[in-house]
Nucleic acid binder design. Structure first.
Lengths: 164, 164
DNA sequence: TAGTTTGTTCAGTTTAAACTAAACAAAATG
DNA sequence: CATTTTGTTTAGTTTAAACTGAACAAACTA
């Protein structure tokens, strides 16, 4: 790794943080190992090879393989190679944070879509139901807009992420 | 129930919507039955007794009991009684929507807190790590602020929930 | 060529949580 | 009092998903 441990004197807080990110991932519908991997890279920067990740996080190489692929697809990690070295190295992408929100954005959009679908399908005789569905749809659309706005500000604003 | 099915001609779309809300709940870290219950009340309004809910949703009375209690604690449902009737009836609270967001708000707050904790604990020698932790913390704080803002607008604005 | 070192895949195990069903308690009725 | 009707609790089952470990494939080395 390039950005190696500055000290080696703080694996305690470091592990605590890595576990924290594992729990955050769980709460977000992602595998615990994916969150721990992300936490590891937040701390140590990388690049780091697959085999080393398995050792450091004490998980199987199979799990590292599937979860690095997942984080790669989400846009949090990217794979880099070095000439004369067969190993795959991983590192954080340039702007990994908005990818963390994509799940929430997508869930809000899907929720809204299903609700709007029900609203459109029900006959007008379902008066109260349609009113409540419209309110619920508006609510999820607000979540969608708000979270998508944050993603957008990271993608456009490139670097400076002020309040909005 | 007061707000009974207007027609009986649309259980198909109705069930589809109820199942949709079950999936939305799952994606949000809530039990599927909790989401189906909420969907049922969006459609039929209520009040509806516990036993009837178990029959209509085809789940055990135990599950209805635990999940109505959950939704009650979250502020989505409230329990009402009728004189001369021993049954518990449930109905949507006056403004149930913001409760749907409280989970996201809390998760963002917890994520930020753990990250800030790590940032404070690590020695300054972890230069790159602390910079990344600060960015990550700022990111989760933005999510927290944005979602909390939506909750607040529902709680204060009482009825008119414009763009912001 | 055989032997290493790498990443991937997948069958099987483990784990965590939802869900059920049965026992229970409380409140009514006859 | 026994019986019925309600809601709750909890032990146990079911289910879904994560995770492992071993087999495999691909690319290199001696």
């Amino acid at each position: 790794m390039n950005d190696s441990m500055p000290d080696d004197s703080a694996p305690e807080q470091a592990n605590e943080f890595i576990e924290h990110m594992g729990r955050v991932a769980r709460a977000d519908g992602l595998p615990r190992i994916a969150g721990r991997l992300f936490g590891f890279f937040i701390l140590y920067g990388g690049p780091c090879a697959l085999g080393e990740l398995a050792v450091k996080l004490e998980v199987s190489r199979g799990s590292v393989s599937t979860n690095t692929r997942l984080l790669e697809q989400l846009g949090l990690l990217e794979r880099v190679s070095r000439r004369g070295d067969r190993k795959d190295y991983f590192q954080l992408t340039a702007d990994p944070f908005p990818a963390l929100l994509r799940g929430i954005v997508a869930r809000a959009r899907d929720a809204s879509a299903g609700i709007a679908h029900a609203h459109a399908d029900l006959p007008d005789s379902w008066k109260g139901a349609k009113a409540r569905l419209a309110d619920l749809d508006a609510f999820y659309q607000r979540i969608h807009k708000a979270t998508e706005g944050i993603v957008g500000s990271y993608e456009n604003g490139a670097e400076d992420h002020a309040k909005s």
